[in-house]
Design a protein around this nucleic acid. Sequence first.
DNA 1: CTCGGATCGTCCGAGTCCAGACGATCCGAG
DNA 2: CTCGGATCGTCTGGACTCGGACGATCCGAG
Lengths: 162, 162
Amino acid sequence: MGTPSSHADQTELAICAAFPTDLTMLLHAAAGRMTDDLDLAAVQMGLNDVRDWLVLAALDDGRQRTQLELSRVVCVDKTTLISVLDRLEKHELIVRSVDPSDRRVRIPAITPTGRKVYAKFAIARDMAEACALDGVDQSGRALLMDLLARIAHRQDASLSGV
Amino acid sequence: MGTPSSHADQTELAICAAFPTDLTMLLHAAAGRMTDDLDLAAVQMGLNDVRDWLVLAALDDGRQRTQLELSRVVCVDKTTLISVLDRLEKHELIVRSVDPSDRRVRIPAITPTGRKVYAKFAIARDMAEACALDGVDQSGRALLMDLLARIAHRQDASLSGV
DNA sequence: CTCGGATCGTCCGAGTCCAGACGATCCGAG
DNA sequence: CTCGGATCGTCTGGACTCGGACGATCCGAG
């Protein structure tokens, strides 16, 4: 699926070179940079892109979820999720089983193989993130995460009238 | 072009709900959140999405650039840039002129109208960013921008052997 | 039991992105 | 001057995304 070697979204990476002071572009650039590294690591262990390990991460907690619930959790369109699950199932990293109490729904579950692959990826991910924050002290990291979470979860921008 | 009301990339936004501690997902979520707001503001003043005002921002400094140089500066694929420029030119926000010294190249330039639209957008952008950082003191903002820039500009991840 | 509406996963069509091909143009070697 | 290679903008084909439609299934009202 796609060309894993290229950026997930090419607008993100190099913007910063031109406009280093803009918050939004910096966020995109930083996110794109991290994703590039993570996609690379994912490809090295047979996953395709960010969605693959996102789904595995969600399934790794063992909770039973329908595909629709899963698509909401990882915020991937339910249509797109199908192709992701198809691929993961083909590689035997997950299985889809029919819920006996509701034959409409499919319950995707991670396999031992999938768990192993995800664990391996998680190590690479943690390494990449540690590397990205190398030299930043603990309070700085906490502040960064807090600010990012605040921006991400902020409810409304209320910039209606301009 | 596209559906401006939806997210630029649906993987970015709600990931945080599931995995709030992951740096990469937080970056994506925060970037997606900001972009959603900015895209909304852009649509309200006739632009289409992030690429439109990105191009305008790059052209606003008045420097002469070929389309290829421009595509590199804003990190938009040169093929995709064509459609952006076509649309901006149709709305008379930019003009493409042929460089007399090299008839292969086209020099896009922002028009007074384009400059006006971009200035209007820049106000909304600054408002959105100020809103996002509301309640964060100056040293916190500086630290955030510094860390983001560091992550974005980091040269290599060196996570080859896992 | 029956049946109409709601909800699941899947499929299809329109739109988008981008690697590679293409014509037009430039430029340096001869 | 000529001409082969490099570089510009544009076009095209294949792959992907996602809104809406579809069949299958569930469930509550009657």
